[in-house]
Amino acid sequence: MWQLCSCIPSTLPDPKAVSLMTAKLSTSFVLETFIHSKEKPTMLQWIELLTKQFNNSQAACEVR
């Protein structure tokens, strides 16, 4: 999951749409799956990734 959410090629046709999709996927994974795990050794990395994704995508920050 980390590879899907953190390593996005810059050659994709619509970078804003891709940023939004990865932010949604990352947020969904953290809140619905990862948060329920007993051990969270990479939680800080996930939070840093989410912060970066939200900083790069205004659409991801909007409430819908």
Results as ranks from 00 to 15, higher is better:
S37Q: 15
M21L: 13
N56T: 03
W46R: 09
V63Y: 11
S28D: 11
I8H: 06
T11W: 11
E48P: 00
T42G: 05
L31P: 02
C61L: 11
S10Q: 15
P13V: 03
F29S: 01
F29T: 01
L4Y: 12
Q58E: 14
K40S: 09
S37I: 09
Q3F: 14
W2E: 08
A17E: 10
S57T: 01
A23K: 00
P15V: 04
W46E: 03
P13E: 07
M1T: 09
Q53V: 01
P9S: 14
K38I: 07
R64Y: 11
A59R: 08
C7Y: 14
R64Q: 12
T42A: 12
T42Y: 15
L12V: 14
C5Q: 04
L20R: 00
L20G: 00
F29V: 03
L25R: 03
S28Q: 09
S6K: 06
L20A: 01
C61W: 06
K40W: 06
T22R: 08
Q58H: 11
R64K: 12
Q53T: 03
M43A: 15
S28Y: 11
H36S: 13
I47F: 11
L4Q: 14
C7S: 14
E32C: 09
S37H: 15
A59P: 03
K38R: 13
K40A: 08
T51S: 12
M43T: 07
H36T: 09
A59I: 05
L4R: 12
M21R: 10
N56Y: 01
K16W: 04
L50S: 03
K52Q: 12
W46C: 03
M21T: 05
S57M: 01
A60R: 00
S28W: 10
S6E: 08
I8N: 07
T27P: 00
K16F: 04
C7A: 13
I35F: 06
S19Y: 02
L4P: 02
T27M: 04
V63N: 12
L44Q: 13
Q45K: 15
W46Y: 15
V18R: 03
A60Y: 01
L12S: 05
C61N: 09
W2G: 04
E39D: 13
T51K: 13
K52P: 01
L12R: 05
Q53G: 01
T33M: 07
I35W: 06
N56D: 10
F34Q: 03
S6Y: 07
E48S: 10
A59G: 07
K24A: 02
M1C: 08
F54L: 13
V63P: 06
P41E: 06
E39C: 09
F29I: 03
R64V: 13
S26D: 01
F29W: 07
F54W: 07
E62R: 12
M21A: 14
C7W: 12
W2N: 05
P9T: 08
T27H: 04
C7P: 02
F29Q: 00
P9L: 05
P9Q: 07
S10W: 09
